[in-house]
Design a protein around this nucleic acid. Structure first.
Length: 597
RNA sequence: GGUUCCGUAGCUCAGCUGGAUAGAGCAACUGCCUUCUAAGCAGUAGGUCACAGGUUCGAAUCCUGUCGGAAUCGCCA
């Protein structure tokens, strides 16, 4: 039990005994006392003062007296206007500190919850390489999965690869026309980039054909449909659906190239999956559900045989679920895969990490599922995230303003190398060790930069200026960790053993030490909130605050000097604690922390 | 036009379920490397929390409206 829960309970008792009002202890909200005031936890008493029909100050004093009398851990209290500030005894903080400082799993929930949480993320198309938008998706999906695991959930990370459809056929057609048998081996290109190259070539050629047709007097709309290369792609799609062996062989070959490329990018980003679904296996799913819905009469069939869901009662419009020719649309498939996933995992929650351009889609998905009688539709949660914008505006593939994931990562590594060498940081490093460090720093900078922003918000990414190594950045936190490791190494050289903690209670904590301990104390709660809100940003901003606070402490405290051995032990232990929490937080964000840099 | 989301310092972002004097970083300016790593620290300056109403002891936070920006409203995925 934490002090907060004990305080809540006692306050609840106090209100009951003083004012005969019963308030659930969970409804008693405590906040951390602001730095400018004395105390550790603050109760805002205005609501209870009203209840007690007394003025706030009087009520605060009464509650304060009661709590101080009943709770030995509360050493004192003070009242300012309607704010009741409790001071928790130093013994409590020291005890908390010595109980937890060496716990590498501090804050991690060890009790396992039974039902899994399924997190779908990444979900790439196989016709082009991953770009900056995918990076946000992948980092968010991976990190939130790890955060949920740390909160005791059994998490299944899944990827639904969109491996079929007109887009991949476009790449195939272009490759047949212009490829001359080019392969990743023959060209030295990464497979996904190679296939992407042909997708771009297709588009170029397609545009040219449209222009030619326009020049011949055809309408724009017609030209877009009649362009020969597009018709060819559509023919390839028909052949694919008819399981034409030659088409399938090419499709398999080119997809294999792409997967090979994706795997490399995923590995660089450090993300992984427990299960991969392929749309080619699932794209026919969902039709049965629709039929069932028709029989139940919750869906409507129009004269042309197309099937619709009427969502006007829910404030939306009508949504197509089956085309007039009986083929399925995106929504049909998603209905099917949702059911499949529910059956596969019997999950407590189905999380989809998908961009906010699909907010409407998921709203409809949930509503239709419910209409069809699947109560578990409420378990579907769309973890929606905003777009990544560039200084020039939106990323547009046609205008070539897309930031390629692999290019960006390489560029980051170059930057890390350049800056590190300028600082002369790695002159003593072996070459291999230095390269490894540049890698860690580059990915740390990139990941932290993206994860620290609230997912719902669109974010701006300036490739030239945004990725920095100073200030609120990944490398700053990594740097803090490296210095902590350095202190612990030096302490070991001085034969300072931090195991002698039973001696701690006789040492007074300085204000700065106490402040750090209070920040550390908050970690489990932050972790829980990050899980509940599906927001790695919460954790990222917390760990920055911690690192910043530690740096201030580091600067004006002689951790290893000019003091008694016991004080040194205490401070080194504090370093250990801060280091552990930084390491854990960063790990959950997917960021490695080096021991020296 | 309908719906949803966003709007906080010059720029990029925090601000937990309403609480005390709105916080960081970057950029600018001042100091600090003989002392555990200066990728750092301390400080100065920078705000009508888009705007207007409302709710209440109390609003950046909740409600309504207005103005800006984004997304979406395809028999594309």
């Amino acid at each position: 039990m934490t002090v907060e829960t004990i305080l809540q309970k006692t306050i609840s008792d106090a209100i009951l005994s003083l004012y005969s009002e019963s308030i659930d202890q969970k409804g008693i909200i405590l906040q951390n006392t602001k730095k400018e005031f004395n105390g550790d936890f603050t109760l805002v008493v205005f609501p209870y003062a009203k209840m007690a029909k007394k003025n706030p100050e009087q009520a605060a004093n009464e509650i304060g007296e009661y709590v101080k009398r009943e709770l030995p851990v509360v050493s004192d209290f003070n009242v300012i206007k309607g704010f009741l500030n409790f001071s928790v005894s130093d013994e409590y903080w020291r005890q908390f500190f010595s109980d937890n400082f060496s716990n590498v799993d501090f804050g991690i929930q060890s009790e396992r919850k039974e039902a899994p949480v399924v997190v779908e993320y990444s979900s790439p198309n196989t016709n082009k390489p991953l770009h900056l938008g995918h990076i946000r998706n992948n980092l968010l999906g991976w990190s939130i999965s790890e955060i949920l695991k740390a909160n005791g959930y059994c998490v299944k990370k899944v990827n639904l690869v969109n491996d079929r459809g007109i887009h991949i056929c476009k790449s195939m057609v272009a490759w047949l026309h212009f490829g001359h048998g080019e392969t990743p081996e023959s060209s030295g290109m990464k497979g996904d980039h190679l296939v992407g190259k042909y997708y771009v070539l297709f588009d170029k050629h397609y545009k040219k054909e449209i222009n030619d047709l326009l020049a011949n007097g055809m309408s724009k709309e017609e030209a877009e449909k009649k362009a020969p290369i597009l018709q060819e792609a559509q023919e390839v799609l028909r052949k694919w659906e008819a399981k034409d062996e030659e088409t399938l062989a090419l499709w398999r070959k080119m997809n294999a190239w792409v997967y090979d490329g994706f795997d490399k990018t995923y590995a660089k980003m450090g993300v992984d999956f427990d299960k991969i679904y392929y749309e080619s296996d699932t794209y026919l799913l969902g039709k049965d559900i629709i039929k069932e819905g028709l029989q139940k009469g919750v869906l409507i069939q129009k004269a042309d045989n197309s099937v619709w869901a009427d969502l006007t009662p829910d404030g939306l419009d009508e949504k197509l679920l089956l085309r007039s020719d009986g083929t399925s649309v995106y929504m049909t498939q998603d209905l099917g895969t949702a059911l499949l996933r529910h059956n596969d995992f019997d999950a407590e929650r189905l999380i989809y990490v998908v961009g906010n351009e699909q907010n409407y889609h998921f709203e409809v998905l949930r509503l239709v599922m419910k209409k069809l009688g699947y109560e578990w539709a409420e378990k579907i949660y769309h973890l929606s995230y905003g777009m990544v914008e560039l200084p020039e505006g939106k990323m547009k593939s046609r205008e070539g303003t897309v930031v390629d994931a692999d290019d960006l990562i390489d560029e980051m590594i170059d930057t890390a190398r350049k800056i590190s060498e300028e600082h002369g940081k790695t002159s003593a490093f072996e070459k291999e060790e230095a390269e490894h460090l540049y890698n860690i720093l580059a990915m740390g900078a990139l990941k932290y930069f993206i994860l620290k922003v609230d997912p719902v918000k669109n974010m701006l990414f300036n490739p030239k200026e945004s990725i920095d190594f100073n200030g609120n950045t990944g490398p700053f936190i990594q740097y803090t960790h490296a210095r902590i490791c350095s202190i612990i190494r030096k302490a070991a050289e001085k034969n300072i053993s931090i195991e002698k903690l039973e001696q701690f209670p006789i040492i007074d904590l300085s204000a700065k030490e106490k402040n750090l301990i209070k920040i550390l104390y908050a970690f489990p709660n932050i972790l829980k909130q990050a899980g509940e809100n599906y927001s790695p940003a919460l954790l990222a901003n917390y760990v920055y605050d911690l690192a910043k606070e530690f740096n201030g402490f580091y600067q004006d405290t002689s951790i290893l000097h000019e003091t008694t051995e016991l004080q040194i032990i205490l401070r080194v232990s504090l370093c250990r604690f801060v280091g552990n929490v930084i390491k854990t937080s960063m790990k959950l964000l997917g960021i490695e922390v080096p021991e020296r840099m």
